[in-house]
Nucleic acid binder design. Structure first.
Length: 332
DNA sequence: AACCTAATCAACCGCTATGTC
DNA sequence: AGACATAGCGGTTGATTAGGT
């Protein structure tokens, strides 16, 4: 089935899904002239596609070494989340750190994830009906101060592979999960993941690692894979200098995305290794025990074991305030 | 098996940045 | 310097697929 109109009003520009023959023509062109002169493809009568369309097709589907049809790995997810926290919706930039991924891939991934989040975070029964979302432009979202509060994230300069990079560590974290290997990175907490009680809760759909959650749940706090951004020759040196980051505000008023993207997030709760890390949202000592390597949250009375709705209700609602169309707490 | 819903994918559009004349 | 063309980016949307009931 063709998407939308096949041709524009003049019947000259073809639109919609690409056929394999068209791909072949495009590939030939690129092979001959390189990935440029997209407009000449049409002017030469090779294809009835716009240069724009040709370029997009090449970038998103025909380029070599693309991970087409491959789901985002947990590490890729983590990278996206971290970089999104730092750069905002700069998908193309983020994609430069993900081999084989396009900006469209990253964008779609993020969008899908946001949808999931938004759906689960629908107005709880007791909550007052939120006012209509302000006419916040996407630009303003991108420039949201919260995004810029994220502390510096620096891409590693070493050229070694991820595996190599994660071997030696002065501070290792571990858990029994096959995904939780010792790492030497400051762990990026999973988004909302600490709140996960079981894979069956509604919150599970929030998880960024849906596929592995049953294997690794909080309070192990250890990310499934270390985030070591692959050094890409085409990626610019990644160091964003920000004006002295403010001290972490109280949890309940702190933007969760900012917080979770903060590599020093756990430092708020004390120096030291994973054993001292406190899951987010903060669970007072005693209510939450050590995982003992089980990576599971088993305690009864654990707030995370509550029914999904109750569980969500227990969040400070402003922790999700970055998510459109939910209004910011200040507007409540 | 049929239907419904959510997730994912692919492609378009509008806008901006950059290069060229 | 300004106009124009092209490339690139981000947002959006429609189609398809997968999963659940």
């Amino acid at each position: 089935m063709e998407r939308g109109r096949m041709y524009d009003e003049m019947g000259e520009i073809k639109k919609g899904p690409w056929k394999s023959e068209e791909d072949e023509v495009l590939m030939k062109h690129v092979k001959k002239y390189g990935p440029r002169d997209w407009s000449s493809i049409r002017s030469k009568g090779l294809l009835q596609r716009t240069g724009k369309s040709c370029r997009l097709r090449w970038v998103n589907k025909l380029r070599p070494n693309l991970k087409n049809g491959v789901k985002f790995s947990s590490e890729e997810e983590r990278v996206v989340i971290e970089l999104q926290g730092q750069f905002g919706n700069k998908w193309a930039r983020i994609a430069t750190y993900l081999p084989g991924r396009t900006d469209n891939d990253v964008k779609n991934f993020w969008s899908s994830r946001q949808k999931r989040l938004a759906r689960v975070l629908q107005t709880p029964p007791q909550a007052p009906p939120p006012p209509p979302p302000p006419p916040k432009s996407h630009k303003s979202l991108r420039e949201s101060p919260s995004l810029h509060k994220v502390p510096t994230f620096e891409a590693p300069k070493q050229s070694s592979s991820t595996e190599e990079s994660s071997v030696t560590s002065p501070k290792t974290l571990s858990c029994s999960s096959p995904y939780c290997e010792p790492i030497n990175m400051v762990p990026l907490p999973e988004l909302i993941a600490p709140t996960t009680a079981t894979p069956t809760t509604a919150a599970t759909s929030l998880l960024i690692y849906d596929d592995i959650q049953p294997l690794c749940q909080y309070p192990c706090n250890v990310p499934p894979q270390p985030v070591l951004l692959p050094p890409f020759p085409h990626a610019p040196p990644l160091k964003v200098e920000l004006p002295s980051p403010p001290p972490p505000p109280p949890l309940e008023n702190h933007d969760i995305f900012t917080q979770l993207a903060d590599p020093n997030f756990f430092a708020v709760f004390g120096q030291g290794g994973s054993s001292e890390m406190v899951p987010y949202p903060y669970i007072p000592p005693g209510g939450e025990g050590e995982s003992g390597g089980s990576c599971g949250r088993q305690e009864s009375g654990d707030p995370m074991m509550m029914a999904p709705d109750t569980f969500i209700d227990d969040f400070p609602m402003d922790m999700f305030d970055h998510i459109e169309p939910l209004p910011s707490p200040s507007e409540w």
